[in-house]
Amino acid sequence: MGQNRDHRSVRARFWDRWGGQIIFRKQRDRRDDAVAARFDAVGLRYGTGPEIFTDIHFELAAGSFHFLTGASGAGKSSLLSLLYLAQRPTRGSITLFGKEVTTIHRRQLPAMRRRIGVVFQDFRLLDHLSTLDNVALPLRVAGVTEEEIRRHVPELLSWVGLKEQMLAKPPTLSGGQKQRVAIARAVISRPDLLLADEPTGNVDDRIATRLLHLFIELNKLGTTILIATHSESLIQRFRMPRLHLEDGNIQVLDAPRTPARPPLPGSALNALGALGNPGEGDG
């Protein structure tokens, strides 16, 4: 019973936090933008190379959850990088949260980027910073006070099972631990759009499943999610709609109907709770 209560309090704190009232002052009304992202006739080429995308059209409804699939080299990372505003398309138009971003002035980029959380394929953690400082980064650049950072970051870190590694630097972490630091950094500011590039590439199936549950949980709270993955088993297990890249084109595939979605192991929040148990295995 006591354990159960503990669990509840964790859950209550989770909802407090991820339910959205406290952590960030700016209150955004997600309903405002029914579409999180839209691509219209987007083309992209690197230098003088061939076009990686030709006339891509698609839409991510706000609050949706998609996998992004395609062979290696199909352009998954490139597509995500267009979404997290690391580059501009060669042609066409990209709309994020109702704003055309292909022509946006670079002064307006930071505000846009703060609404987007990214888990990079190669993590891109800053090696000289502790786990704590890495995860705090999005808050620091947004000018959140140190006091709030000290209140929220360690809590999220114990959530993802890195309480013990709080002061460790990335080079001393295992692959799976780094992955979780990267994910924590991507979700700490509770972004409107979460983009993850092979977020389960470095972990075993069990942890991959847990991380997916973390994303599902975030999605339930309103975050639009797009996850690039190669993993057939993930796609099979979590029957989500897919964006499939092939020959420079994109196809939206609905979630497969059958077989029925397997029941999640307990509540997804339980999975988060399990992640938060540092005693249990990691990557």
Binding site: Y84, L85, A86, L109, P110, A111, M112, R113, R114, V118, R124, L126, L137, P138, V141, A142, R185
Partner: peptide, 12 residues
């Protein structure tokens, strides 16, 4: 590389 990460995280 670090500057790029900071940018993508929303640093001005």
């Amino acid at each position: 590389p670090a500057i790029e990460v900071l940018h993508l995280i929303g640093a001005q």
